[in-house]
């Protein structure tokens, strides 16, 4: 895959400043957008179109915490995705099920305040997990870190379960916005 961090000209890390990255995206778009090359030759128009598309693709990956984490794992050579991630523990699943049940009840009761409360509690957990991922990645990608040439991947594999958690939380929050949508 294309390294989205390389396209943005920044070091690999998980905790990024989205405002700063949005600016880089805009700066790159200004430089590459096909509109700027409307009068150019076919080869430049094509090259601009391709580069602009890859900049947009990189931005799509970087702005989403789940996709950003997936990209960082892939770049570090750690396999993630279907069949590659450890099964979550029973305790965690029990909690998720209970939260989802509570959300389903609040939805049935049209209790929007409750839905929002469950949503913000989940958002807080999501932020915690993001912090854990950030420090995990920071250790592996730190240029002067304690890791030698190879152990980075092994160490990083320990962080993989947090990606799974991130997806569960994200799923929950998607559900929250769906409920808000139907109650608008």
């Amino acid at each position: 895959m294309n390294d989205p961090f390389k396209i943005f000209g920044v070091a690999r890390r998980f905790d990024i400043d989205l405002v700063e990255f949005a600016k880089i995206h805009r700066v790159l778009s200004r430089a590459l957008h096909p509109d700027k090359y409307a009068q150019a030759g076919a080869s430049e128009r094509r090259a601009a179109l391709e580069k602009a598309a890859s900049v947009n693709e990189a931005w799509r990956v970087l702005r989403s915490p789940v996709r950003r984490a997936e990209a960082l794992f892939a770049l570090a050579g750690v396999a993630v995705g279907e069949n590659h991630e450890p099964k979550p523990g029973v305790e965690f699943l029990m909690e998720m099920l209970e939260e989802r049940e509570a959300l389903a009840e609040a939805r049935a009761a049209k209790d929007l305040a409750k839905v929002r409360a469950l949503g913000s509690a989940m958002a807080a957990r999501l932020a915690e997990t993001e912090a854990k991922l950030a420090s995990g990645f920071a250790k592996s990608f730190a240029p002067t870190g304690p890791t030698g040439p190879e152990p980075a991947a092994a160490e990083l594999a320990m962080v993989v379960p947090f990606l799974g958690q991130l997806r569960f939380y994200t799923r929950f929050l998607d559900e929250v916005s769906l409920i808000e949508e139907e109650n608008d």
């Binding site: 000209g9 880089i24 790159l28 080869s43 094509r46």
Partner: peptide
Amino acid sequence: IDDLDTATKSFAERRMNRAIAMAIEGQR
């Protein structure tokens, strides 16, 4: 036009890469 396209292909690529590099540099 197609011939010119072929002749300028890699030059266009280099120009685009430089545009990226300059944009990032400018941002920095």
